[in-house]
Each structure stands twice: as structure tokens, then as C-alpha cells.
């Protein structure tokens, strides 16, 4: 009797949690998709003119902006994160690993506004001085994001490297391989799917990040032509304009949300597929 009750209530809680998510998704699509019907899917996605007052809602500059900033973050962040996790798992003394891993995980908990603030105070002036422009730029956003995705990538790839059976390493070393050859030729291929998944999740984090990017990106509505140019991402666009958007404009912001939703879905699904394949 009591069992039944607990079961029933757990079921209720679970379904309500899920249905809230479903409702939100549904809401976003309901509010945003009419724009695609009204203006045409292609003219919204590939239109590069965003002037809400005149009724032009091309989000292409923001899509490009998001991609630029994310690719930049990956180019800077992934090598660093992988080097760090390989070092910590394969070469560092155990004691160091036990200290550093939680410390890195702690980094993931720092609010993004703090990263943005550090970016504004330190990074932006540096870029202004050394690379020109205002400093609020693709580069600044990429660097900030690269740092922000480090904990995600390091955490997951460390886990998947540690999960590689020690017998592979022993087998390789016993054949006369150096530790580095062992890592490069046996351990990394064995941990490949986990490492890839960590990169994809990091990518999702980079695309979705809003606050820190708004603070350092400059947010001009145009397609950036250089690393030092100002840039506005999909998320930034929603956050910056939602306060005063009404009518079609509001609808367009929801449409931006749908596009973002698409990106994140694709990334998460591929991360899931990759980890499951193992």
C-alpha cells in the first residue's frame, strides 16, 4: 500500500517535470514558428538584415556570430583542455590529480558574469592595445568561452581516459613503447568516444553561454569580418532585446530561440550517440 503510494507520487513528480520541459519547448515553437510562415524560413535564417523597427528579421549575422565565437573557443580551448587532461591522468602524480580535479570542477561553478567581468577588465583592454579595435570582439568572446568550457572538457575527458583499462597501458609499455607513444597510440584511441563527447558538450556550452559573451563581444548587429570585430550571438540577441520586444519582434526572438534549440539538440544527440557506441 505504502509502496504503491510512493511509486505513484514519484511517477507524478517525474511526469510533471518532463511535461514542464515539453510545455516550454512547445511554447517556444508556438511563439516563434509563425514568423517562419510569415516571412519565409530562408529569409529569416539566411537574411542578414536585422532591423526590427522596419520589420526585417534576418538572423544570419547572429548565426555566423555564434559559429565564429564557438569555433574560436574550441580552437583555443580544446588543445589546452586535452593537454591538461592527458597530463593529469597519464603523467601527473596521483596526489596532484586528486587536488586539481575538484579544483577544475569548481571552476565550472563560477557564475558566468564573473568570467565576463574579468574579460572586460583584463582581456578587452589587452586586445585593444595589442590587436587594435575597441577590444570588444570575437577574439575576446572566444577567449572567455575557451576558459569557460575548460572544466567541461577536462572533467569528462579525464573520466574517459581514466576508464581506459590499465592492461592496455601495461601491454603497450611491455612492448617497449614510451609513455607518450602509449598515450597517443593506445589510450587516446581507446578513449576516443568519451573525449569527442566532452568536446561536443563543451561546444554546446559555448553556443549557449550568454552573459559573459554579451559583456565582452560588443554586440554590433553585423557579420564580423575579423577577429577584432564586434559580434552578436544568437543568445546575446535574445537577451539584449527581449526587454522591449513586442509583436513580430517578440516572435522573431522566439524564432532565434528555435534556431538555437536546433543547434543544441544536434550537439547533444551526437554526444549521446558517440558515448553510446562504445
Amino acid at each position: 500500500m505504502k509502496e504503491k503510494l510512493i511509486q505513484k507520487s514519484l511517477f507524478l513528480i517525474a511526469t510533471s517535470a518532463i511535461s514542464i520541459l515539453v510545455l516550454i519547448t512547445f511554447f517556444i515553437f508556438k511563439e516563434g514558428s509563425p514568423l517562419f510562415l510569415k516571412k519565409g524560413f530562408f529569409s529569416v535564417v539566411f537574411g542578414s538584415d536585422w532591423s526590427p523597427i522596419e520589420g526585417h528579421f534576418g538572423v544570419w549575422p547572429f548565426i555566423v556570430g555564434s559559429i565564429w565565437v564557438t569555433v574560436g573557443a574550441l580552437v583555443l580551448g580544446v588543445p589546452l583542455a586535452l593537454a591538461c587532461s592527458i597530463f593529469l591522468v597519464e603523467f601527473a602524480p596521483k596526489k596532484l590529480r586528486l587536488w586539481v580535479k575538484p579544483a577544475i570542477e569548481l571552476l565550472a561553478g563560477i557564475p558566468s558574469v564573473v568570467y565576463g567581468f574579468i574579460g572586460v577588465v583584463i582581456l578587452v583592454p589587452l586586445i585593444r592595445v595589442y590587436f587594435g579595435g575597441t577590444g570588444f570582439s570575437v577574439l575576446a568572446s572566444s577567449v572567455v568561452l575557451a576558459i569557460m568550457i575548460l572544466p567541461t572538457i577536462i572533467g569528462i575527458s579525464m573520466d574517459s581516459l581514466s576508464a581506459v583499462p590499465p592492461s592496455y597501458r601495461e601491454g603497450s609499455l611491455a612492448l617497449g613503447a614510451t609513455p607518450w607513444q602509449t598515450v597517443y597510440r593506445v589510450v587516446l584511441p581507446a578513449a576516443r568516444s568519451g573525449v569527442l563527447a566532452s568536446v561536443i558538450l563543451g561546444m554546446g556550452r559555448a553556443i549557449g553561454e550568454t552573459m559573459a559573451v554579451i559583456m565582452v563581444a560588443g554586440n554590433a548587429v553585423r557579420i564580423p569580418g575579423a577577429l577584432t570585430d564586434s559580434v552578436r550571438t544568437l543568445t546575446s540577441n535574445i537577451a539584449l532585446e527581449m526587454g522591449y520586444a513586442i509583436g513580430d519582434h517578440r516572435m522573431a526572438l522566439f524564432a532565434t530561440g528555435i534556431i538555437l534549440f536546433g543547434f543544441i539538440m544536434v550537439l547533444n544527440i551526437s554526444a549521446n550517440l558517440l558515448t553510446r557506441k562504445k
Binding site: 592496455y168 611491455a174 612492448l175 593506445v186 584511441p189
Partner: peptide, 26 residues
Amino acid sequence: VGMVFQRPNPFPLSIYENVSYGPKIH
């Protein structure tokens, strides 16, 4: 002085890559 372990521990690579592993790293 080579070693064979208690539990067979082929690398998660192809048969060819397993056998050619040693000569390659050398």
C-alpha cells in the same frame, strides 16, 4: 624481454594494428 599477460589484452584496434604496433613504435 617481452611479456604476455594473464588476461589477453589486445588493444582496441584492428588485428593488423595490434600486431604491427610493436614494429611501428620501434
